[in-house]
Amino acid sequence: MVTSIIRRLIQALFVIVAMTIIVFIGVSVIGNPVDILINPDANQAERARVIAHYGLDQPLWKQYLLFLQGLLQGDFGNSFVYGRPALGLIMERLPATLELAITALGIAIVFGLPLGLYAGLYPNRVSSKLIMSGSILGFSLPTFWVGLMLIMVFSVELGWLPTNGRGPTAELLGAQWSFLTGEGLRHLLLPAFNLALFKTSLIMRLTRAGVQEVLPQDYVKFARAKGLRERRVIAVHVLKNLMIPVVTIIGLEFGSLIAFSVVTESIFAWPGMGKLIIDSINLLDRPVIVAYLMMMVLLFVVLNFIIDICYTILDPRIRLDAKA
């Protein structure tokens, strides 16, 4: 167990280093932040001063080494745009994205699992076919379009829910959260549904496929032959087996919800990390981009690790310490 943790951390380290190099080269290829940062009316002396201030007068490899040096001291660099530490900027936005992602995932699980289970158990019913056709829509409709439609219907036409922003927040554990206030919750609902739609379809289809794979197994038949009630056969024998692939996907999708909720955050003007990273890319704010991507690599490593732990709980066959 310990060796596998260490091995993972080392792998993560390599990924992070590789990624910082790619970002450094990538951003410098896209354009020069100087053109965006500096007032076009500025004179030559002022330009040179600003460029030197950000260290952009150095060759790229030297900038990179300076960045690594700072990193070893826990300094991710200051944002070109805000002039504040990049990491701090990201951490400020983290709670907003986190609560959005968790709510969306919660919605996806609460709807996806039971619907998928139903469609898997009764594949020939009309309702199951409707569910499965619906999931195709959930898969294929572009998120931005669904987001706009949600705003059109629920905000503009019906006027039930607000169109954008987080609404009032309340403090918990030193961070600001929307879900703690009624108004904030109303703000959270539409973007969370927008994000959840694709994930719901995914979990639904996966659950259904799992049910259809597990149901014909001998051990399900044997469970019935023991005279177990159908409810127990499904809830214990079938569900526990099909949770193994579902948990993997839920874990990875949670990561992607946090990392790539850019579109939804932009449409609903949700002040989360997704919006920050998009703004940063537009402004070529390299320190923020690098810090953000490093965070995401770490996030995926941690998530994968949690998934693996869930595996060993669900599937005794891969427990390393199991007695033979």
């Binding site: 051990y219 038949k221 044997f222 032959a225 005279g227 526990k240 087996n241 599937d315």
Partner: peptide, 18 residues
């Protein structure tokens, strides 16, 4: 299971692995 029980062919598949 109570009055009529059954034993299956492949013992590696009969018991639930988890």
């Amino acid at each position: 299971g109570k009055r009529i029980a059954m034993v299956f062919q492949d013992p590696t598949m009969t018991l639930n692995p988890v």
